[in-house]
Write a protein that binds this DNA or RNA. Structure first.
Lengths: 261, 261
DNA sequence: CGTTCACTTGACCAACATCAAATATGGTGG
DNA sequence: CCACCATATTTGATGTTGGTCAAGTGAACG
């Protein structure tokens, strides 16, 4: 049944990806052929290396499967920066100058190659903004949220993104993630992730079984983890960023001494 | 003496910013005038709000002073995402759709308004890549580095960036940051930042006095904090991202079970 | 000279990491 | 179907890191 769900997803991407190629009399069969000619596959665990530092930068769009951006320190510590879901682009980073971050397939991956994408259209800009927004969210998670909050917050983000591409059924969706991957994304140890999940299950926040997750009472989860959906930016933006005197008095005045000894 | 250093910096920015406006007979005085006409100021602690959600997006370049991007949670927790130094652009974010992150001046701020910057040139792309790179570094710091490592790592980044705009003298540079700001950037508590700094001082890693920092033996610091300068991307990129069997055996195979119950 | 803001320090505690071992689970070959 | 193996999850015991609370110090400033 999993393959079926993925196929539905693929066909929807055919339309959105190729719909603007030729508006003329190209038959649907032609389109499907053209689509599949550009499909590439990556095995789970393989590194997706693109933009071979000199070749034309190809832009890959994930059709099915999950990937992640990550970095590994010399001593083995790992940090996952973001998850890449169906519909997301794998940026052609690394072709430029900065590229100390790799993309690894977390499951078997199906991607379409859009070739060198030189012009940045409105949709591309929007996607880039959201991507950046997610990086900020991730920073907030790791810097200021507790383990329980981090897990919930990430699950809510994944729910929102998967929902947008039709991979959520009700409140339930599938995550092909190991607890170790989860830990590396959230900056926690596997053991502690395990215990945190246990706690969340026991307290009825979520239901996690065999790779699918069901979020119970999403608004409550959002409140408990300070999650701000991408939909309500404006409202959040209106909050006083530089706190006044009422809000815990944590204003940011001009410092009078700096990191003194 | 502080003002003097800043002024030197400003004049260098005049050249680089306005050098391409007119290659003809515009006198230097004219250039200076044109420059100063576009200068804006922000007080320390004030929020830099740009792109008033509908007006023309102006792009601001910091001439002198420090700012930061941050977010505050409803319960008062703060997270600083990045520091903005002289020469950095204050992105016109927020004018689009996502903007749950504010820019606050950490010191008195002098910025030039470049007006709406619609075309993205090579320099702009390069800057954007480095900015993103720094976000990744920050994520790595908060997710996988210890307190001591985080502090060193951040100091090294600041050194590198300040050096590039000529604000480092020898191994010493000034940071107008409160320990509280430092804490909010690194996801630690003020008290713990204090103790960490104390330790670093005592062990001779750095010398921090009255707002200026001297890094002792930068290569050793870099090694101790897993710092990778922006100069050696290639080398780092060549590291095996998806570890083989030699490197602690932490490969990323296809997960066979996923977040089971 | 008192007030304010930042830094400092000590005592105590909670969150999370680490180590080690036990227990599923799924895949594979017989 | 069963035995076996590798991988993942779970659990307990224990240690460390870093947070919180509270109080004290020192410098700048009116």
């Amino acid at each position: 049944m999993e393959g079926e769900a993925y196929f539905v997803n693929q066909s929807s991407f055919q339309v959105s990806t190729l719909g603007d190629v030729g508006s003329g009399k190209i038959s649907d069969v032609e389109r499907v052929r053209a689509f599949w000619r550009r499909v590439e596959h990556y095995d789970a665990g393989s590194q997706v290396r693109q933009g071979e530092r000199s070749g034309p930068e190809k832009q890959l769009i994930i059709v099915s499967g999950w990937a992640c951006e990550l970095r590994i320190l010399p001593d083995g510590r790992r940090q996952i920066f973001s998850f890449l879901l169906p519909g997301d682009a794998i940026e052609a980073r690394g072709a430029g100058s900065v590229g100390a971050c790799g993309v690894v397939a977390l499951t078997r991956l199906e991607v379409v190659n859009r070739g060198a994408q030189l012009t940045v259209d409105a949709a591309g800009r929007e996607a880039a903004l959201q991507r950046e927004q997610r990086l900020y969210d991730h920073l907030m998670r790791m810097g200021r949220l507790s383990a329980k909050e981090r897990v919930i917050h990430l699950l809510l983000e994944l729910h929102e993104r998967l929902d947008r591409v039709g991979l959520v059924h009700g409140e339930t969706f599938k995550i092909p993630l190991t607890q170790e991957v989860f830990a590396d994304a959230l900056g926690l140890s596997v053991v502690h992730i395990n215990r945190t999940l246990k706690g969340l299950r026991k307290e009825g926040w979520v239901c996690i079984k065999a790779g699918s997750v069901t979020l119970r009472n999403r608004p409550r989860l959002a409140a408990a983890s300070c999650y701000r959906s991408e939909a309500d930016d404006l409202e959040f933006d209106a909050l006083p960023l530089c706190a006044g005197e009422d809000r815990m008095g944590r204003a940011i005045p001009a410092p009078k001494r700096n990191l003194s000894a």
